[in-house]
Simulated scan of single mutants.
Amino acid sequence: MEFFTNIMWMVDILEVTHEGILKKFEFLKGNLIVGKAGIKGANSEERLPPDQHVPETHILHNLVRGFYKPAGKPYILSYQATESSKNYGKQIIWNDESETEFLHIEMAPPDKENDPSKKSDIAAARYNLNHNIPIGILHKIKKGHNRMLGLGIITSERDDGVFIVEPYSLKDSSLHPLEQLKRLIKNEEINTNFVAEVVQRRGQAIFKKKLLEDSAKCAICGMDEPSLLIASHIKPWKYSSDFERLNKFNGLLLCPNHDKLFDQGLITFTDEGNVIISSFLTPKTKNKLGLTENSWIHLDEAHKKYLLWHRENCFKA
């Protein structure tokens, strides 16, 4: 029920203004904003005026520090990554050389022990993490020049205190089920088990669609009948966060036979994509299923953390 609980929280807590600011970040994605007027207003008295996204005066970031936690709120609203050696070094891991889409961001909290806002910033970031609340992302290219990178969502906190942020989209209803579930939960008598089942079924369908867009065949054997292919989670649905459940890099498109083997931990893969076969499989079974030690699949960098989880928690050596 954790997923449903989180959605209920979002319906109650994600204020119209907050949600509007997140929509504005997504709308402005890719834009270069020069000066502070387009981010926080001309001065402290003149905030940004209401617009098509936000119904009241507002700011996107205060441009004072990396983390921006609005006064009186428990969450981080936005983060400004600087890529400067004076500010934690390289924070943005880019998807490609164009530096327009990020693969993930290493969001370092304040590191000065006497920083009065350090504890509240860290607590707020954990609040976002625990409640799956997205944040706006700015890239400070140089003084007074910020490129809007859209939205991200905090997916984990490393042992060194750095928060990992991955791309997020409000436009993709698979990643933002709020509007879908608002309609479902209007009835106070609704069966929460039914809601969870509907959400999972809908999520699985969207998850498969994402995988099919990249490759419409089994990653192992190449079988290419879409109706028979299964979108197999690397880290199973029940153990995944809301974000992980619908992240295409947490999935492999497999034929029924290979999906069963993977689901039961009888095969897994190295970070390089080489198959690892369980000792529980007999030579005859491996031969029937076309499995050899030379079997290989294509992987992206973002698959690796999920495969590590699968090797450590699912695979039966």
Rank of each mutant, 00 (worst) to 15 (best):
T268Y: 05
C221L: 13
H233P: 00
F243D: 01
L229D: 01
G265T: 12
S279I: 11
G251I: 12
P283H: 06
N257I: 14
V275G: 00
I267M: 05
S278P: 04
P283L: 08
E225T: 15
L291F: 06
S227L: 13
L246K: 11
I230K: 15
Y239A: 13
H258Y: 04
N287M: 07
S241R: 14
E225N: 13
I267T: 07
F280M: 13
R245W: 01
K288R: 13
K288D: 08
K235M: 11
F280D: 10
L281W: 04
P226H: 13
S241L: 08
M223Y: 11
P256A: 13
N247Q: 02
T268M: 03
Q264K: 15
R245V: 06
E272W: 01
L229I: 11
S227F: 12
S232P: 00
S278N: 05
A231Q: 02
M223D: 00
Y239C: 06
P256L: 09
S241C: 08
L252V: 11
T285W: 02
G222Y: 08
K248S: 12
D271Y: 03
N250M: 09
K284Y: 08
N250A: 10
G273Q: 06
D242Q: 15
H233W: 05
T268P: 06
G273E: 03
F243V: 04
L228A: 14
Y239V: 08
P256W: 10
S241E: 00
K238M: 07
K284M: 05
F243N: 05
S240W: 07
L252M: 12
L228C: 10
D224Y: 03
C218L: 05
P283T: 12
N287C: 04
L266E: 02
L252T: 05
T270W: 04
